[in-house]
Simulated assay, not measured.
Amino acid sequence: MTESQPHLLFSFGTLLDRQVQTALFGRTVATTPAALAGYATRPLAITDEAVIATSGQDVHLTLKRRLGSTVEGAVLRLTDEELAAADAYEVADYARRQVLLTSGETAWAYLDANPLRSAARIVIVGDSIAYGRCDPQGGWTGHLAAAHIAANETQNRVFNLAVPGSTLADVSAQTPALLPPRHPDTLIVAAGINDSAVPLAAPGDGHDGLAHLTGHLDSLAATARRHNARLVVVGPVWLDETRTGDYEGLRFTTDRALALRTALRAWCADHHIDFLDLWEPLRDQPHLLVDGLHPDAAGHKELHRHLDALG
């Protein structure tokens, strides 16, 4: 039986405290100095009494994105059990995600649980719904961009690079060349509904776009990691199957869209990737869809309200 490899965890706060380590792990942990570029810190009020008792502090630090900044800290090497103990210690405001250290090593770090709240420079890739088709204001992504940039005109940017008709295969192939000049810290992938479509001309040809999702998502995760960008996957929007019988030679169904939603959610859970579910906001509201598939202006506003409420 072989022992599992230690988990590298980057910390800059209370997990470096020897008393906290002893309380959580039953030992003190050797650390190695490390740094995380593209981040700064902000205070976070803690209300969990157990966490306050362990750390002795009711204000911890959390990370936010800032181009040109660096957070100094250290790497802890933890066992499976110790990493689980660290997860239990961190409050719900944090989520464990992978980051790229200045050393070139990949490590875990506890980031803001809301990936959009901590973002600064966002790149959006995806299909016609992400593009904002059927909404002159640019769809939910347009509303997101307006609010995000208004919050900090100096530092915040949103680049919507979605292309109508794109599949995840298209997105995974095209995205690597799009990121370098934009210096993203967050990559939002809003695609996949076209992968769920069944061609009406040859429905039994054996091709199933849903069968290849994992490979495309793995590729996008690797692309995001190379840029130290946080990957955020957006799930499909509810559709009205009664109005999508023949959409430009494609058939979109509720069952296939739900299969896509389930597959995306499962992959994200397995890989500690953020998943934003857009199914419920428009569920059973066909009047918010132009053609059974694309939200209208009011539908896009509803999607943005849903995302905004997550913060």
Rank of each mutant, 00 (worst) to 15 (best):
G104H: 10
A190R: 01
G139V: 06
A211I: 11
P203F: 12
S219D: 12
A222W: 06
R182Q: 09
A191D: 06
T102Q: 15
L210K: 08
D205P: 04
A146E: 11
T106E: 15
G206W: 06
A150W: 09
T175H: 00
Q174S: 14
V99Y: 08
R96K: 02
A197K: 03
R133T: 15
A173G: 05
A147R: 06
A130C: 12
A169D: 11
P164Q: 05
D170E: 10
A109D: 06
G209S: 11
V158M: 05
V125L: 11
A130I: 02
L187T: 00
R97M: 07
A162K: 02
I188Q: 03
S172N: 00
L144W: 09
V198Y: 06
F159L: 02
T175N: 00
N114T: 05
P199G: 08
V158H: 08
Q174R: 14
N114I: 01
V99K: 05
V163C: 11
W140G: 07
L210Q: 12
N160G: 06
H148Q: 01
E105C: 02
T223Q: 02
P180F: 01
L168G: 11
L161A: 10
V198F: 10
D195S: 13
S166F: 14
A120K: 07
A151P: 03
R121Q: 10
P203E: 08
S219F: 00
A119P: 02
N194D: 12
R96H: 00
I124Y: 07
G204K: 03
A191L: 12
Q137C: 15
G138S: 10
V171Q: 08
G215A: 10
L220I: 02
G204A: 13
H148L: 01
I188N: 04
I124N: 04
V189P: 01
C134D: 14
A177H: 03
S128M: 07
D135W: 10
L178S: 06
R117C: 08
D127Q: 12
A177S: 14
E105H: 09
A130S: 14
A150E: 13
D112T: 05
S166K: 08
G206I: 07
L144C: 03
P180N: 02
G142Y: 13
A119E: 00
A130G: 13
I193K: 05
G138Y: 14
A150S: 11
A145V: 04
S166M: 08
